[in-house]
């Protein structure tokens, strides 16, 4: 079990006077899959970087299992809070995929046997079992992303943060991501993902947080969040095409999937 609590967090970058995050309070609990959405530059990444101490709040605090994040260094948090960066090229540095996966757990002093077991499992989860001997440089962008995700998951962190994992992924890539998210839920992890892909977000998350200009505008289940077209517009977020269609038809029920749409249409024409 794990808890993450963000309390009245405000933050502004050193070289600018305007604040990036204003009085943010959020809490997450075990097994939650949370998507953070909103336009670029609204502070999504800035917020997630507070969860492992890359950034420290100007005011307010972040607690993980009731420990203030500021009390330890980012590197010390790595075993508990896994963070997958937007660009895998920033994160990968070894000459084989296998070494990337081994690096984290061996750093934590985990016994060799256990590491072997983890690598076998994680490489299959992220679809890298055939590429273990490859140099990360030879992977496609999408494979590099999965390699970086694998490197983080190999440390078995209780909180997993991913920044834009959906960017540039094709159908099978997104399907694999969905599988990973599902697995993390069964393991009672907290999974926080920044994404622009509304369709993916609706289909794979229990909770969506909508941000605009450093504030949280909406926070709730996909159905709840997407039933507020007015607020979403303020955040420059367009709901998934199906939801949008139903709203333009003037339907009151919020539709998230094709089957829901067909059912509603049938109800209406009967």
């Amino acid at each position: 079990m794990v808890t993450v609590k963000i309390e009245n967090l405000s933050y502004s970058y050193k070289d600018s006077a305007t604040s990036v995050l204003h009085d943010i309070s959020l809490s997450f609990s075990s097994g939650e899959r949370v998507a953070i959405i909103g336009q670029n530059g609204t502070g999504k990444t800035t917020l997630t970087k507070h969860l492992n101490g890359i950034l420290t709040p100007d005011t307010g605090r972040v607690l993980i299992d009731n420990v203030n994040v500021e009390n330890k260094t980012t590197a010390e948090w790595a075993s508990k809070v896994g963070y997958v960066f937007q660009n895998p090229n920033d994160q990968l540095f070894l000459d084989t995929v296998k070494k990337e996966l081994v690096f984290g757990p061996s750093h934590l002093g985990i016994p060799k046997k256990e590491i072997q077991k983890r690598i076998r499992f994680v490489s299959e989860l992220v679809g890298m079992q055939e590429e273990l001997a490859e140099h990360p440089l030879n992977l496609t962008d999408s494979e590099k992303k999965f390699c970086a995700i694998g490197a983080v998951l190999a440390m078995d962190p209780n909180v997993v943060i991913m920044d834009e994992p959906t960017g540039g992924q094709d159908k099978s890539g997104k399907y694999r991501l969905a599988k990973i998210l599902e697995y993390l839920k069964t393991q009672q992890k907290i999974c926080i993902v920044v994404s622009h892909d509304m369709r993916f977000v609706t289909e794979n998350f229990d909770r969506i947080v909508v941000m605009a200009n450093g504030h949280i505008l909406l926070d709730g289940a996909p159905k709840e969040v997407f039933s507020n077209p007015q607020v979403l517009k303020e955040a420059f977020v367009t709901p998934p095409p199906i939801t949008d269609l139903a709203q333009k038809l003037g339907w009151e029920t919020t539709i998230l999937s094709i089957s829901e749409f067909i059912e509603e249409l049938k109800k209406r024409v009967q």
């Binding site: 094709d170 159908k171 997104k174 199906i242 269609l245 094709i258 067909i262 249409l265």
Partner: peptide
């Protein structure tokens, strides 16, 4: 081929199948 079909198209495909 690992290509996702546009959501609107999928919807109207389904609606066509059931004769709507």
């Amino acid at each position: 081929l690992n290509i996702s079909t546009p959501l609107n198209y999928q919807l109207t495909q389904e609606l066509t199948k059931i004769g709507i």
